[in-house]
């Protein structure tokens, strides 16, 4: 905390008031409601509700479908993080290295940040369409009969590709700024040692980027969990069927499409716990970062 503080007793409250009241009304009140309704089975129209204790949680956790969605979410998160991190690391490393055109590449590689996830999903629908999709056309030459929305794994592939495409820019920007903060003298010293570019990267640059990479991993996990909603909703064309889905999408489906308030709320609370764990992890990581820098 700052040493030099103001000591006016009511003014800080006034400054905090807008934030606190918005949070109270639009965050805490709904969140508490979600927790409460996770213990009830409720008539969708709100005419009656029955207290059922932990039944919603038990049924959720025992359900094969929940387990299937959880497994997909983990695999999806891993694939999206892995591919978007490695592609952007490669691109950032090269963009940092080239002598000419660096800023042009930088612009070309980052602007997709501003594309909304559902628009990315819509482009995905066009690219992976069964009858005229460019990707479908292309892989058909290799004997892959790509069927978006029919084949579970094909749909999953499309989801991963679109989600990676959308996430490369964020990772790229962070990696690049991480690379630029590495003192030039370190690279020059390595050059004198005359290592090959490849081993120079792994022995010198990568360890220096590791904190950035760890931090980005959290960002990517959060992204894959929550921000891919629009992409998934577009790619399945709002019909879940035999398509893969993430846990957040399932909360939406059961609550909003299926009107099962209790079951959906229980899933929300489970997600809250997951995010809590992630956040604790993130806070500890940030503390360490601040400590080091």
């Amino acid at each position: 905390m700052k040493r030099a503080n103001f000591s006016n007793p009511w003014m800080p409250l006034l400054f905090l008031l807008p934030q606190l009241s918005i949070i109270a009304i639009f965050f805490y009140y709904p969140a508490v409601q979600a927790m409460q309704s996770s213990f009830y089975l409720e008539d969708p129209f709100g005419f009656g509700s029955t207290f059922v204790g932990l039944r919603n949680y038990v049924e959720t956790l025992l359900s094969d479908q929940y387990r299937k969605a959880a497994i997909f979410t983990v695999v999806f998160t891993f694939l999206v993080s892995f591919f978007s991190l490695s592609i952007s690391l490669l691109l950032a490393y090269k963009a940092d290295k080239v002598l000419r055109g660096g800023s042009t590449y930088k612009t070309l590689l980052m602007w997709v940040y501003a594309v909304a996830p559902p628009v990315a999903g819509l482009l995905g629908v066009m690219y992976f369409d069964q009858s005229f999709g460019l990707f479908t056309y292309f892989v058909a030459d290799f004997g892959w009969d790509f069927k978006l929305g029919v084949d579970y794994y094909d749909t999953a592939t499309a989801m991963v590709v679109v989600a990676v495409w959308k996430q490369v820019p964020v990772n790229f920007i962070f990696f690049l700024s991480g690379l630029q903060s590495i003192p030039k003298s370190i690279n020059e010293a390595a050059l004198i040692d005359n290592n090959s570019g490849f081993s120079r990267f792994w022995t010198i640059t990568f360890p220096l980027l590791a904190p950035t990479a760890f931090f980005l991993l959290i960002i990517n996990i959060t992204y894959a969990l929550f921000d891919t909603f629009g992409i998934i909703d577009m790619l399945v064309k709002a019909v879940p069927a035999n398509n893969p889905m993430t846990l957040v999408y399932k909360v939406y489906l059961d609550g909003f499409r299926g009107n099962d308030l209790g079951g959906s709320s229980a899933q929300s609370v489970l997600l809250m716990i997951l995010v809590l764990i992630l956040t604790v992890f993130q806070f500890r990581l940030i503390e360490r970062r601040i400590h080091y820098t």
Binding site: P30, Q33, V248, G255, S264, M272, T279
Partner: peptide, 12 residues
């Protein structure tokens, strides 16, 4: 509030 994106408390 950082814990809980709008997506998971959207119904209430």
């Amino acid at each position: 509030t950082l814990l809980l994106p709008l997506e998971v408390r959207i119904l209430p």
